[in-house]
Design a protein around this nucleic acid. Structure first.
Lengths: 303, 303
RNA sequence: UGACACCGUUUUUG
DNA sequence: CAAAAACGGTGTCA
């Protein structure tokens, strides 16, 4: 069955607090945002997240029809992207392409999929577009007010585990970023933030979040001694994380270690983070955010 | 006293309907345009017209400071022009110089004058530059809409002879353009504007301005019954112009008639205007503006 | 290769 | 009504 979804972005003040949203129907949507973004980044991200959500739900083989009111986003994806890729991701005027990382992420995500776009005039009463508009703006407004952006249900079947306290960023779990104090080293702070992102995604069963963080060829050593490709797998309920130590392991590479406790158990965890651009493959991974990528993670039960 | 003025050009669609403007202050400016022009012709013409207006006002000996946002125009006038003249008006690559006639006109007009240029970034909030921008674009839009470009008051002392009400565009002399009412025929309006330009140039003794309006082989019948080539010649002081009537005289050709009065006399005046491209000569005149050209003008004393 | 200008289009805001 | 974020193009020169 063809999936039809509306996407929209919003940026209060442009640039300013921003949000994105995709909507399939009243019970199937998602949204998110940032403290500072442009309108066009919102529009693009909405498409990217829709692509990922459908893929994570195992529905990448179904045709996807996207309703968008941004001619910019539609042109980027259906037209300009191809010329840019041919020219080595350069614009006609040689000036840098805006929102490049998100565009490249879409470029990878959309490969081999059947996606069509339809332009709908903004604020013209189209119900799905209105809903996406509301959600995107709601996300931006939430973030402007200092609250986390309300995320939607997504596709049913995208994650199977119960929500964990780590996922809501409330700070009670020791995983909160920023705010009170800054980490003592700017570069290690980047790795610490990435580790926390990884933990939240893993515990929430957020496969696309994990994929964002994974280095090409990433693997994991599980508590049972097995190794599997990828980062996804079962997580304990309501874990508590000890202090995370980050140690440099070479230019751009970091090792993190910490302990984890949960009802009935504890473990030692370690991760190896590699720089985003640290592979010599012909097609660079060009990660969406330029941050470090998780190459290896290992868990050992404590007893 | 140093005269400071901003200049700007505009071309809708580039090339397309175009305009030029110079602004000294809110009460001292001028503007004009063509049905088809390039942005750079507009920028250059604005400078040329400023040079002519200051000269016609008898202020050629005062230093002139020009604010321009076009590096092209500034470089043409302050740098490249000299090299081109030395090399017989040829570029280094031997390809033809663009806008050559206007550049040579500036080259002649600027000789012996103290003119300095200052580059101001476009659309950066510089008040004088913004004003010139508005005027130039307004002229281009007027012409696109089929109206004559609204011309400004120019300099208050714009003729070496006794000041005439024709020059100041106040409307009391019947030479004011635009503003309150539009001329009832769009094409005749173009001819009327040209006729007014001709009158201003003649009365001001502006030979260059007259040459711009002259068709190849233009002649004039003077009140004494003689005929001479060209359009320049003695003008009465402080003439007053009656209503100008424009009548179509063939495809693109117009006849205008009106009366003129001055202290101690009156006359009947008539002009024949031909389309700019209406000659089969081998070397086309390539008139600066593409507007109609004055082929014949005749004066008869009234008595 | 660079620079400036001139436009066209859509969206997003205030 | 005015502005920002984005893209495409032309006009010009060294």
């Amino acid at each position: 069955m063809t999936i039809t979804a509306a996407v929209d972005g919003s940026a209060l003040g442009n640039p300013g607090p921003g949000g994105w949203a995709w909507v399939v129907d009243a019970g199937c949507w998602d949204a998110g945002g940032w403290p500072r973004a442009t309108n066009n980044l919102g529009e693009l991200t909405a498409v990217l997240e829709l692509l990922r959500a459908t893929a994570a739900a195992g529905r990448a083989d179904e045709p996807l029809h996207v309703l968008a009111d941004s001619q910019y986003a539609i042109n980027v994806i259906t037209k300009w992207r191809h010329g840019w890729r041919k020219r080595g991701w350069q614009k006609a005027d040689k000036k840098p392409i805006a929102n490049l990382e998100t565009i490249q992420a879409i470029d990878r995500e959309i490969a081999g999929r059947a996606v069509t776009f339809e332009w709908v005039r903004g604020h013209a009463g189209h119900p799905l577009n209105e809903m996406a508009d509301d959600r995107a703006r709601g996300a931006a407004e939430a973030i402007q007010a200092g609250r986390p952006a309300p995320s939607g249900p997504g596709f049913s079947g995208a994650r199977s585990l119960a929500p964990s306290p780590i996922g809501d960023g409330s700070g009670s779990d020791g995983l909160a970023d920023g705010g009170d104090g800054r980490d003592r080293d700017d570069r290690s702070a980047l790795v610490l933030a990435a580790e926390k992102r990884f933990l939240r995604a893993w515990i929430a069963g957020d496969e696309r979040g994990l994929a964002d963080l994974a280095a090409p060829g990433s693997r994991r050593g599980w508590p049972d001694g097995t190794v599997r490709e990828g980062l996804a797998g079962p997580a304990p309920a309501a874990p508590r994380i000890g202090r995370i130590a980050a140690a440099p392991a070479g230019p751009g590479t970091w090792l993190t270690t910490y302990t984890m406790r949960w009802e009935g158990g504890a473990s030692l965890e370690s991760s190896v983070w590699a720089p985003a651009d640290a592979d010599g493959s012909a097609a660079p991974p060009a990660p969406e955010d330029g941050g470090p990528r998780l190459l290896w993670h290992q868990s050992t039960l404590r007893r």
